[in-house]
């Protein structure tokens, strides 16, 4: 066997790429990942990417914001420094609705985006792990682990028959470190 690590099928059209995925899966060839310049709906189900739980996380981040604001404002206006404003109640709840709402949104947004970045390993300065530089431009790339799938010629043929414009045999996993 050669030193080929990954086989990349580079498509010019998303529909052809979907055909490619279908053909590979029919032949029990496992797909490592797919890189596209835009989201392709329905593809995650085919590749077994689970449903995102970010919505649940967002809810709990939001609730944390709500509780933080209500607790904070209670501590400030009732416990720490109660101010008598015409004998009105110290904890004037309706007045605190706007700020509680704002803090809920703030916590929710930051928590959500933070978890998204963490779960997909995005952070400033991270070295991009790119297999094909055109995958962010105009190519839809299917990556197949060459070590796990031995029948390289068959993979080539399947990709080509699905309409791949180019099939690459990469000896390095990522081209972006070069």
């Amino acid at each position: 066997m050669s030193n080929i690590k990954y086989i990349l099928g580079s498509f010019g059209d998303p529909d052809e790429m979907l055909t490619g995925i279908k053909k590979l899966q029919e032949n029990n060839i496992s797909i490592y990942d797919v890189y596209t310049p835009m989201p392709i709906h329905g593809i995650e189900a085919k590749l077994g990417v689970k449903r995102s739980r970010l919505d649940i996380a967002a809810f709990f981040f939001g609730i944390t914001g709500t509780i933080t604001m209500l607790t904070g404002v209670y501590l400030a206006t009732v416990v720490d420094w109660p101010v008598n404003i015409g004998g009105k109640t110290h904890f004037a709840f309706p007045d605190f609705v706007p700020i509680t709402f704002e803090l809920t949104i703030l916590f929710c947004a930051f928590g959500l985006v933070g978890s998204y970045y963490a779960s997909t390993h995005l952070f400033p300065g991270r070295a991009p792990r790119v297999m094909d530089l055109r995958a962010t431009d105009d190519r839809f790339v299917i990556a197949i682990d060459a070590k796990q799938n031995a029948e390289h010629d068959k993979i080539d043929e399947l990709l080509k028959s699905a309409g791949a414009l180019e099939v690459k045999h990469n000896e390095r996993k990522y081209v972006s470190y070069e």
Binding site: V34, L47, F123, R126
Partner: peptide, 10 residues
């Protein structure tokens, strides 16, 4: 941020 455009990220 190291964006690649993989299925999960999208």
């Amino acid at each position: 941020f190291g964006w690649t455009g993989s299925v999960k990220t999208w």
